[in-house]
Design a binder for these strands. Structure first.
Length: 332
DNA sequence: CATCGATGTTGAG
DNA sequence: TCAACCTCGATGG
């Protein structure tokens, strides 16, 4: 499942391409037929992300709440207006599926238009989903409209020109405004929602109150929103913090440091579509690490490999039914 | 081609 | 604490 950064990116896609337009909704798979019927024909008013949840508001106080869970995804197709704050979508969309599950979206080269600084006015781009091997040599199915349904699609949202297919979500439900507020109320602070300074105070209070290991607190969506297993491991390493340290024993300055690191990592993730956690590396070492999708992190998914800093074997353990990667030497 | 594991959460027991 | 959810890329034979 995408961590918080991806959900914000998806929300921006909806804001850019669906908000302000009437939306046709259906449930090709059938499991959300009732909800789709309610949405069908209403204008989308607003899209917002809070942590890993996305909320899409329609006319008449109808809200769609979606949580992608472990393997849910949104597939966008058709004509897509790229949100100017979403860098890696720029100029590359015709070559890639826009999928909500991607660990990382394609890395941009440094040439001209694709660079971060060149992002300006939104541009129109043609996007075809699933344009890889399957369609080559056959009639060009990519131009069909609406696109043929592939596999299990829980919910399809259509404007005149844009299609979004939802598959495999953990949660897909309609809510009233009060329920939306209640849902958001239960979530810990998201640096991109509300006042970050207030979020910091809420985070510090929640962490310093508890005897729970900090590794569990960072993944607790009621403590802080949007952090998943990758960012968790990377943030703990970046702070050189022992994952087992009880929250109440983490020095206040270190807790504040974790919050500020999340603010920074989330901003970078939303801008680039990648979980960039090794911004401390430079030059060849950085390029080498980025070259491999599987080895882009300080500790995540590096069990048994030498720590990039001290050479100690990266440890792997299960905590809260998730895998935790860390350096027993750097993170005392 | 079959099996496994994954960026996650929920609810049963 | 663990299975279920229900998708798909990676891995193994």
């Amino acid at each position: 499942m995408p961590e918080g950064h991806s959900v914000h990116r998806i929300a921006r896609q909806f804001a850019r391409n669906f908000v302000g337009r009437p939306v046709a909704a259906s449930s090709p798979q059938g499991r959300f037929a009732e909800g789709a019927a309610v949405i069908d024909g209403r204008e989308a008013l607003q899209a917002k992300a809070v942590g890993k949840q996305m909320f899409l508001e329609f006319e008449g106080d109808v809200w769609l709440r979606v949580h992608l869970g472990l393997y849910g995804a949104w597939d966008f197709a058709g004509e897509i207006l790229v949100d100017p704050t979403i860098a890696s979508a720029n100029g590359r969309m015709g070559q890639t599926n826009q999928r909500g599950t991607d660990l990382d979206e394609p890395i941009l080269d440094d040439a001209g238009e694709n660079s971060l600084s060149s992002i300006g006015a939104p541009r129109r781009t043609r996007v075809h989903v699933r344009m890889s091997e399957q369609t080559s040599g056959l009639a060009d199915e990519g131009d069909e409209w609406p696109p043929p349904v592939v596999g299990q699609v829980r919910l399809r949202l259509l404007t005149d020109v844009t299609c979004a297919d939802l598959r495999g979500p953990t949660a897909c439900a309609l809510q009233g405004p009060d329920e939306v507020l209640a849902t958001i109320d239960k979530l810990g602070p998201d640096p991109l929602v509300g006042d970050p300074a207030e979020g910091e105070e809420r985070f510090v209070r929640a962490v310093r109150r508890k005897p729970t290991p900090i590794a569990l607190l960072l993944m607790d969506q009621s403590v802080v929103s949007g952090i998943g297993n990758v960012y968790r491991a990377e943030m703990l390493f970046r702070a050189r913090l022992n994952p087992h340290t009880p929250g109440r024993d983490v020095p206040e300055g270190v807790v504040r440091g974790l919050w500020h690191d999340w603010v920074r990592l989330l901003a970078i993730g939303v801008e680039t579509g990648q979980m960039m956690t090794m911004d401390g590396l430079t030059g060849d070492a950085y390029r080498a690490a980025m070259a491999s999708r599987d080895d882009r992190h300080w500790v995540y998914h590096r069990a048994g490999l030498p720590c990039r800093v001290c050479g100690t074997e990266i440890a792997l353990e299960e905590i809260g039914a998730r895998k935790l990667y860390w350096c027993p030497s750097c993170q005392r």
